[in-house]
């Protein structure tokens, strides 16, 4: 039986649609095709015979599939690269500072963006991110380090605030 059907569609959409869109945003730098990416991932869930050990396993599969789907999308020669503002209806604008920070994150390199999201938002370790993205742990550490450095410089120069990116600080990754 396919893993996703009417019985668990609502749970899977509620649990993962936003995450898929955020990863899509980090990978593709836009949310314009976010629903497409979501639908592609959910169709893969509907069409494949899958068995997951637990919810973590399920989540990891969805993250990997989302990244692979984004890769496929990027490969398409006629992929419509659009780096403008995300669609208004997809992004709540109730936190101006938060959206500013997101814009800064979007200036990072692709894998840095993905690593920042998975590390800070999803709270995966660098080793787990390496497994999810198919990169080495040292590459992920470099991505995080460079991403933090960029954000620190930007945020400090723009807002004159210390955002706690110092080595040994509360948010510093191994």
């Amino acid at each position: 039986m396919p893993y996703m059907d009417k019985r668990n569609a609502a749970r899977l959409v509620n649990d993962y649609a936003d995450m898929i869109m955020r990863i899509g945003l980090m990978y593709l730098k836009q949310t314009y095709d976010a629903e497409d990416i979501c639908q592609e991932v959910f169709i893969k869930l509907m069409s494949a015979e899958l068995t997951f050990e637990d919810r973590e396993h399920e989540k990891a599969w969805i993250i990997r599939t989302t990244i692979n789907t984004c890769k496929d999308r990027k490969k398409l020669a006629f992929y419509r690269y659009w780096s403008g503002e995300p669609k208004e209806e997809l992004v709540s604008g109730d936190d101006f500072t938060g959206n500013d920070l997101l814009e800064e994150i979007k200036k990072l390199a692709k894998w840095q963006r993905v690593a920042i999201y998975l590390y800070y938002y999803e709270e995966y370790s660098t080793a787990e991110i390496a497994m999810l993205t198919g990169r080495t742990k040292s590459s992920v550490q470099k991505d995080l380090s460079r991403g933090r450095k960029f954000l620190k410089n930007i945020l400090e120069s723009e807002y004159g605030k210390d955002y706690g990116f110092e080595k040994g600080g509360a948010d510093y990754a191994e």
């Binding site: 649609a17 869109m21 949310t31 997809l90 992004v91 938060g98 997101l102 994150i105 800070y120 955002y163």
Partner: peptide, 23 residues
């Protein structure tokens, strides 16, 4: 903290409840 700020930024990116329902 930094993690909370980044989480807050990402939390602003989401589908609406109606979009999820339609999906």
């Amino acid at each position: 903290q930094n993690r909370e700020k980044i989480k807050k930024a990402f939390s602003g990116v989401h589908f609406s409840e109606m979009e999820k329902s339609l999906m």
